[in-house]
């Protein structure tokens, strides 16, 4: 169905804007992909893809979604590229993807609708991920990551080797598995979900864990306690090199040693 033929220019699709490597012309070079889908058809489920050339050492990605999930996988094989796949689930949201002069890629959803992202990035990419509602998944990254879900959705980090991790969900679980690097800082928070951390037995960190009404299970690691109440535990594992901050208002906290 054509938008123009019925006299009504209804844009029921997604617009993906991007720039190529000639960075100076970002605003001028709008590489537009515009397609329409009748609301009665399933054409909206067709994914859109766009890739950006980045330099692996300064690669950065910011995603601002509204409703829908964000899945980011880091790999060593596609070192110079950020590859974005966006799938419109419902509604008539638009996806804008642009690259700043500094090389950072910014993806933003506007309008109303659900969009799921499946993104591939170089290992050391700096990530800033945001969705109002929906899950966030990050795998195998070594760059810093910040992930935030305003309302409902789980955050899952697997195989991370990042020195800075910040995650927050209002009512969803935050699950981390990965290394705690000696100078690293890890802040994992959920209002009503649980916070679950799994790290290797050689991990060396200072822990601050607080849960207002939930259970705290910190088993597996021998600790020196600085403070220990029902709601707050401050302790060191080993020399206390990494900083780990876990918080949940209503959920439980689990700290596990990787078998």
């Amino acid at each position: 169905m054509s938008n123009a033929s019925n006299g009504k220019a209804v844009v029921n699709g997604m617009l993906l804007k991007g720039s190529l490597s000639s960075l100076r012309q970002v605003s001028a070079m709008v590489l537009g992909l515009l397609f329409a889908s009748a609301s009665s058809s399933t054409a909206g489920a067709q994914p859109l893809s766009k890739s950006f050339t980045v330099s692996p050492e300064s690669s950065g990605l910011e995603v601002i979604n509204q409703i829908g999930s964000i899945k980011v996988t880091a790999s060593g094989s596609n070192t110079g590229k950020i590859m974005i796949n966006a799938r419109q689930v419902d509604g008539d949201a638009r996806v804008n993807a642009t690259q700043t002069q500094e090389g950072k890629v910014k993806v933003e959803v506007t309008g109303r609708g659900t969009v799921d992202f499946d993104i591939y990035v170089p290992l050391s990419t700096r990530l800033d991920l945001f969705t109002y509602k929906g899950a966030i998944t990050v795998a195998n990254l070594t760059g810093p990551v910040r992930a935030r879900i305003t309302t409902d959705g789980n955050i899952q980090f697997t195989g991370l080797r990042s020195s800075r991790v910040e995650a927050h969900s209002s009512s969803g679980n935050v699950v981390f598995s990965g290394e705690l690097l000696p100078d690293g800082e890890y802040r994992l928070k959920s209002f009503s979900g649980s916070v679950d951390v799994t790290c290797p037995s050689h991990a060396d960190f200072k822990l601050s864990a607080s849960s207002f009404t939930g259970v705290m299970d910190l088993g597996g690691f021998p600790m020196k306690f600085d403070r220990q109440t029902n709601q707050l535990v401050e302790a060191a594992v080993g020399a206390g090199r990494a900083k780990v901050f876990l918080w949940t208002q209503e959920g439980s906290i689990h700290l596990r040693r990787k078998p």
């Binding site: 601002i64 509204q66 506007t110 945001f130 109002y132 935030r148 305003t150 927050h168 209002s170 209002f191 607080s210 207002f212 109440t229 709601q231 707050l232 918080w247 208002q249």
Partner: peptide, 24 residues
């Protein structure tokens, strides 16, 4: 500990509002 809890909740509330502003 309670002081920290209260501050954290204010922070939480402010973050919720900042998120919505970020969505424009």
């Amino acid at each position: 500990v309670q002081q920290q809890m209260v501050l954290t909740l204010y922070h939480e509330k402010r973050q919720l509002l900042e998120d919505v502003e970020r969505l424009k």
